[in-house]
């Protein structure tokens, strides 16, 4: 591990920071969306669900291309960046967070929505007849019952952001410590024929992905058993 330069550790730290920030934002933003999708009877709700699911299907190049334009000086991102005197949100950590939130949205919303739907109407109605306010029903009945969904959503959102490549490549600008995440570092190592370094990082990613998926499945299983 001597050969692992500080450059690699900077990439690791950056990737973890990006994934953690994205996951927290997605839990905050995704929960009300998931709740609405699970409970609403609006006819156009599946249209909204389809929009949320788009990043599952779209290639990262589509997202990367539109984000590059949207974050730039002629898009909304440029207007926001103008608030602190910058011209663009591309090439910044903030820009990557925006991109990752869009990119990983369905991975967080979908499991939480499923969990909310699995609760069914009864527990919520019972709580309501016991005169719990809607807010109280949400916090004390729905949220605890949907815990496995939150766990799955958080883990998938985090892991999927760690695995993000195409979008970051297109809007990042490869700046060490700011936008050069692990997947991009691996790409660079492969391209410059530094395959030993690429190998170390790539193998690390495989182990990480395996551990995440296995741990998630096991914990979910246990939670479900405890719940039933």
């Amino acid at each position: 591990m001597q050969g692992l330069s500080s450059e690699i550790w900077i990439s690791v730290r950056l990737t973890v920071a990006l994934a953690a920030t994205t996951t927290v934002i997605l839990l905050i933003v995704g929960t009300p969306v998931a709740w609405w999708l699970a409970r609403s009877r609006a006819r156009w709700k599946e249209a909204v669900a389809a929009v949320v699911a788009l990043p599952l299907v779209l290639p990262p190049t589509v997202l990367g291309f539109y984000l590059l334009v949207a974050l730039g000086p002629d898009g909304p991102g440029g207007a926001i960046a103008g608030l602190w005197g910058a011209r663009t949100l591309a090439f910044t950590f903030e820009g990557l967070v925006i991109g990752s939130v869009v990119y990983s949205l369905p991975f967080v919303v979908q499991p939480i929505r499923n969990a909310f739907e699995a609760i069914g109407d009864r527990p919520l109605e019972v709580a309501a007849t016991l005169r719990a306010s809607p807010a109280r029903v949400f916090w004390t009945v729905a949220m605890p019952l949907a815990r496995p969904g939150f766990l799955t959503g958080a883990v998938l959102g985090f892991a999927h952001t760690v695995g993000e490549f195409g979008v970051v490549l297109m809007i990042g600008g490869n700046i060490p410590g700011e936008t050069k995440v692990l997947s991009v570092a691996i790409y660079d190592f492969v391209e410059t024929l530094q395959w030993r370094e690429a190998d170390i990082l790539a193998a690390g990613m495989v182990v990480f992905a395996f551990a995440v998926i296995l741990a998630m499945t096991l914990i979910e299983k246990r939670m479900r058993r405890a719940g039933s």
Partner: peptide
């Protein structure tokens, strides 16, 4: 990609 960055105005 360097061209894209300039073309979209993200880099001046």
């Amino acid at each position: 990609q360097a061209y894209q960055f300039v073309k979209t105005g993200n880099a001046e």
